[in-house]
């Protein structure tokens, strides 16, 4: 197990190296001069050249890249063109907000999708099943920003139960954190829940038709035992991947929702960095997202081996 994790971490490092290279090269293709944008109306040739030199932009590309890589290895991802603050700090301070939103949204989705998908599969063709399918169709087709606006209008406008936007750190005030995270997480979670409900339902249906489920029924086990012990455990295996992919993509930031709810997450940071051509910040954000993605994948692989004895991690 330990060897598996180490090997996977080394592989992840190689992937991250590739990510830095791709992002670095892509940024060279983007039109617009970051230093010029950063200076704005204060532009004069001397300051411009000085800034370019300070950022190392006057060096050849290869030198720029290896310079970046060398410093990245020590945790220094450069300095924001815009604010002059270290990128590592900027990116990391966005992490709690993004984690809050992504994890809460996925929990919300799981809590809704699992029971709904399970009941929907066991009672396939019933009223519950039809309702679940309408729900998931609705969740998948209605745009999340519209759902977000409606949620704000209803829960903070009309009912006044929850704040319409903003973020409070969990460590600062758990109660206020919860009230702030509720609306954006529910909005994002609803979409995820819709997708997940379908996967849980179809995975359950597939397992329900397996021979070993009939074997379990032949033993005269209670329906609850058959479903939880024999069906669910097997049905979960493919669903875990879907949950992980959803979580990973939410960790990458939900830009529209973060902008709508004034949520200071990675998504907003990326959006602002693109608008301001703040390359170091953009690079840092992409690198962090890639690292989170790889981490989630590693966890999924370990989870897989736990759930399915046919898979061994070596």
């Amino acid at each position: 197990m330990a060897r598996f994790v180490i090997r996977r971490l080394l592989q992840s490092a190689v992937v991250l190296l590739g990510v830095t290279l791709v992002v670095f090269l892509l940024l060279q293709l983007v039109p617009g001069d970051p230093v010029r944008v950063a200076l704005g109306t204060r532009f004069d040739p001397q300051t411009y050249e000085a800034l370019r030199a300070r950022a190392g932009l006057d060096q050849p590309l290869v030198v720029q890249y290896f310079d970046y890589l060398r410093r990245a290895l020590t945790g220094d991802l450069g300095v924001s063109f815009r604010s002059g603050r270290p990128v590592t700090a900027i990116v990391l301070e966005r992490l709690p907000a993004t984690l809050s939103l992504a994890v809460t949204a996925v929990l919300f989705a799981v809590v809704i999708a699992f029971p709904l998908g399970i009941v929907s599969a066991i009672r396939s063709g019933s009223l519950v099943d039809h309702a679940a399918r309408v729900f998931s169709q609705f969740g998948v087709s209605v745009p999340d920003f519209w759902m977000g606006i409606m949620a704000i209008l209803l829960f903070s406008g009309v009912l006044g139960w929850l704040p319409p936007s903003g973020y409070v750190a969990l460590t600062e005030d758990p109660g206020r954190w919860a009230s702030h995270v509720a609306l954006p997480a529910a909005t994002v979670g609803l979409v995820t829940a819709s997708i997940l409900t379908r996967f849980v339902r179809s995975s359950m249906l597939e397992v329900l038709s397996e021979d070993y489920v009939r074997t379990a029924e032949a033993k005269g086990l209670r329906t609850r035992v058959v479903v939880l012990r024999h069906v669910l455990r097997n049905a979960l295996i493919p669903v875990v991947t879907v949950v992980a992919v959803q979580l990973a993509s939410l960790l990458g930031g939900v830009i529209v929702i973060e902008v709508l709810f004034a949520w200071p997450g990675i998504g907003r940071l990326t959006y602002d960095a693109v608008a301001a051509r703040d390359y170091p910040v953009l690079q840092g954000a992409v690198l962090l997202v890639a690292a989170l993605f790889l981490l989630v994948n590693l966890v999924v692989d370990i989870l897989y081996a736990r759930l399915d004895p046919r898979i061994t991690v070596k």
Binding site: R214, A216, N234
Partner: peptide, 12 residues
């Protein structure tokens, strides 16, 4: 049952 490859639960 007929097929012992499928009539046992793989995860137990």
């Amino acid at each position: 049952f007929q097929d012992p490859m499928t009539s046992l639960n793989p995860v137990l």
